[in-house]
């Protein structure tokens, strides 16, 4: 049964991470365009740092780091009269009240806390990549379009929201759809973050015996389980490819690009 839930977990992760990462990316990209220098630096710094660090090391690092930062912060706030240092040799000690989640919390809180941290990590990492794509897309919107807006007497805020943002999506979409593919393929890494996802269950259920049950009535089926996962991901990417293709055709309608122009001509003749 749990393997079906874990498929839902993966889909849920995609469903939550994609918009969050997009929001992060949008915020990052808008920040780099800001006229206030520190805000712009912040945006640029975020993109540069996260993109520069190699892949799964970031995932492994960030989950523990985030956990410890949260606990340490709570420790300082909740138990100010604690004198011993937090790091004692190879132990990380915080006071009872600062434990996150609380030691006596039910199981589902622990699980969803882990899941939330994983989602946050994914969102930060993919947000940086999305920011890079969106930044490029904003720069790709023809300058004349914005000048037209300005000549109509729009403020810079109005040109940003009414002209730049609606037009940039068509330039951002190829990059974003690429990112979506990468995101789909990054979901098995949930397993490394200690979430019981499909990889975990494929290993458990396929094996001859598991930690919990003694024996399964079948031999080593892990190969077939992983074949099924492989096919699942293949179908998933293929479906996304086709959907994104359709979306692209829809978005280019009436745009000042080569494809948009070709569509217009095909429509009139």
């Amino acid at each position: 049964m749990s393997i079906y839930w874990s498929v839902l977990t993966v889909l849920l992760l995609l469903g939550i991470t994609a918009p969050t990462a997009l929001a992060f990316g949008f915020a990052g990209a808008s920040a780099t365009r800001s006229r206030i220098a520190p805000v712009s630096w912040l945006g640029r710094g975020y993109i540069a740092v996260v993109r520069g660090v190699p892949d799964i090391a970031f995932f492994l690092f960030f989950v523990i780091a985030l956990d410890q930062v949260i606990e340490a912060t709570r420790h300082h706030v909740l138990c100010p009269d604690w004198v011993e240092p937090i790091r004692q040799g190879s132990d990380f000690v915080v006071c009872q009240a600062a434990k996150m989640p609380q030691g006596n919390a039910p199981q589902w809180v622990h699980e969803s806390y882990g899941f939330a941290i994983a989602v946050f990590t994914f969102a930060i990492v993919f947000g940086a990549f999305a920011a890079n794509v969106i930044q490029g897309a904003m720069a790709a919107v023809p300058r004349g379009q914005i000048e037209t807006g300005e000549s109509y007497g729009m403020t810079s805020r109005q040109t940003f929201w009414r002209i730049l943002v609606p037009q940039m999506w068509v330039y951002a979409l190829p990059g974003l759809s690429n990112l979506w593919m990468v995101l789909i393929k990054a979901t098995p890494l949930l397993f490394l973050l200690g979430i019981q996802d499909i990889v975990y269950w494929a290993r458990e259920l396929g094996g001859i015996k598991t930690s919990r049950f003694t024996d399964y009535p079948h031999g080593d089926w892990r190969m077939w389980y992983f074949l099924a996962l492989l096919v699942f991901y293949l179908i998933f990417t293929r479906v996304s490819e086709i959907t994104l293709e359709r979306l692209m055709t829809r978005l280019t309608r009436g745009q000042a690009t080569t494809t948009g122009e070709a569509q217009r001509k095909a429509g009139t003749t």
Binding site: A186, F191, V199, A202, D220, M223, L229, Y233
Partner: peptide, 22 residues
């Protein structure tokens, strides 16, 4: 090309390992 670009490397590793075991 589609098979190896369309699926996660992580799953490919797992599948490869168990395939070789078999």
């Amino acid at each position: 090309i589609f098979l190896f670009r369309g699926s996660p490397l992580f799953i490919q590793f797992f599948f490869g390992y168990f395939l070789f075991l078999k």
